[in-house]
Write a protein that binds this DNA or RNA. Structure first.
Lengths: 333, 333
DNA sequence: TTGTAAGCGTTATCAG
DNA sequence: CTGATAACGCTTACAA
């Protein structure tokens, strides 16, 4: 793995390193002949500048740190996909970290991002993060940050999320318009922004149609839980006539639980649609979905972050960008 | 983001940088009192060594490059999960790249890994990669490499895969034992190792039970294709009594296509089980699965790579480790 | 026990 | 047009 350096070229061509450096960067003050010589030689030996040396010199790493609660999650892996697309096209590398929904690990992980001298940070908060002072600290240190998906209103940091309110509103309205009145809502932990936004959308739709909000119809499931059967059981005592699940995982768990209990399934709507459309079609008879624009969230967030890093940020300061969701209706059978 | 350096500490304490450096690394030749002073001061100011400077000095980056065909894929994101777990616990960072199933992008991406001075490479080949000389070249340059999942027999490089042969054999045998004789096999592109291994397992099971191998019952679907309906139609002309799909995506597409055509679904077996067990249960009536140990593949591959990097590699040289798969039967309804 | 100096690969400043 | 030299942060002979 012995790489060739500017020094090697200089020695071979009997030039100084500075001349070689200039020639390679196509400086105007270099003799065209010398330039040609250097460039040819460099190409022949497949010279590649050492990015680590550059980082040290320029005090920047061209690396973006990304922290997600979990990688092995359809939504987040698609977001990462979007982030990478933009990052690589603009000359940045991406280092991915997971907080595993733990506040402590989020802290440690943020520290790693700082230690590694990332030029910027993209983060989606863990579900157990309520104190956000670690991010405020970074902000004060002028590290460019963009929040995505799980954001925080306590932070004046630019954010990118799906239009959770709108998606939840559309989903709930759809259920109401098809005649349901007792719509159960199975959702994710309460202390994260998206849960609140979805709940608000759900409530707003109920209100619009004069349906009273019933606390008994709402249940929160932690991310850890694998079995949501008990939660469905609780909800069933409230005789709901439809389910609105806040995630794929919950929608699937919900359908599975109902099926296991041989209960005729009302219509279920899942927020956060499947990227995997054939799968959603397969489960369709009782289920419509709200598609979440994971890719676009990633692209937008990465774009903003790089703008911030490069000082090209218009005045997008702590604004929250909301990417529209799409309701995909599937006929009931 | 002005970080504190050894220089700052030296200046503040009226010491030389080397003394500070030694004190921080707890060198024996430093006065305990000085040591205490330095360490205390460093902690108070939250000093963190600059990893970039270290990399430059030590000519290593403590970074592992990982190249997968796609991130947004249940299998690969779980593998990455396993890789990260091991890498972080052993002090390495992970940079993830995607080849997007393209040979050209794989080349470019491998180059990036080299340029970034990764200490090692974990790679799963793109489906369009047949020429593997780019990896042979790296190998000659002594870059530690471990292949996983999509490996190559042309390369004497340590590899980690699932027991694809065994999984396919078990799946096929299960179908045979429940009375099927014309088992269709929908699979992924032919030029990758896993396809061949699975096909071999399928054929071996047929042979064991004296069932003739029928080429007409095997179809290859590219990763790009979203609609596998036509392929299922072709297979249906062969009146199969079971399906053995080589991936989740194909299994789901297969079930969906059959359902759309209102065809009574025989039993289907999907290789590469769902990480998402409730989903598999939901789709169960006609489907059993072969679970692929994604996490373990990642952990094992990362472990081997780091052993190689640190020179602790026993004599695992170009061996292929096969992680067992697990057949999960689900009752037909 | 501590300090000086060189070096990792690169670029920028300042002289020639 | 080209060459020394210093600097980025850190470690490590080698001196003192």
């Amino acid at each position: 793995m012995e790489a060739i350096t500017i020094k090697d070229i200089a020695r071979a061509l009997n030039l100084s390193t500075s001349t070689v450096s200039r020639a390679l960067r196509d400086s105007y003050e270099i003799n065209p002949e010398t330039k040609r010589l250097v460039i040819e030689y460099a190409e022949r030996l497949n010279y590649r500048p050492n990015p680590i040396a550059l980082s040290l010199k320029e005090n920047r790493s061209r690396v973006i740190g990304v922290i997600v609660p979990q990688i092995a999650n359809n939504f987040f892996s698609n977001v990462i996909n979007g982030i990478e697309a933009i990052a690589y096209s603009r000359g940045y590398y991406v280092i991915i970290f997971q907080s595993h929904e733990s506040y402590e690990r989020e802290l440690a992980t943020v520290q790693q991002v700082v230690d590694r001298k990332a030029d910027g940070l993209l983060i989606s908060l863990s579900s157990s993060t309520s104190d956000v002072s670690h991010l405020r600290l970074l902000q004060e240190k002028k590290l460019p940050i963009v929040l995505f998906d799980r954001v925080s209103s306590e932070l004046a940091i630019p954010s990118v999320t799906a239009d959770n309110f709108g998606g939840a509103f559309a989903a709930t309205e759809h259920l109401i318009l098809t005649g349901r009145r007792r719509i159960a809502h199975v959702t994710i932990p309460p202390y994260i922004s998206i849960t609140q936004e979805r709940l608000a959308g759900y409530r707003a739709a109920l209100e619009k149609y004069g349906i009273a909000y019933d606390e008994q119809l709402v249940r929160y499931a932690s991310f850890g839980e694998s079995e949501i059967g008990p939660i469905i059981d609780e909800l069933l005592t409230q005789s709901p006539d439809a389910f609105f699940a806040a995630s794929d995982r919950l929608a699937i768990g919900c359908l599975a639980a109902l099926k296991k209990r041989n209960i005729a399934i009302p219509e279920a709507v899942s927020l956060i649609g499947f990227t995997n459309t054939p799968l959603a079609d397969l489960l369709a008879p009782p289920m419509s979905t709200v598609e979440q624009p994971a890719l676009e969230i990633g692209q937008t967030a990465a774009g903003h972050l790089i703008d911030l890093i490069e000082g090209k940020s218009g005045q997008l300061n702590s604004e929250t960008v909301r990417i529209p969701t799409r309701l995909i209706l599937r006929a009931s059978s």
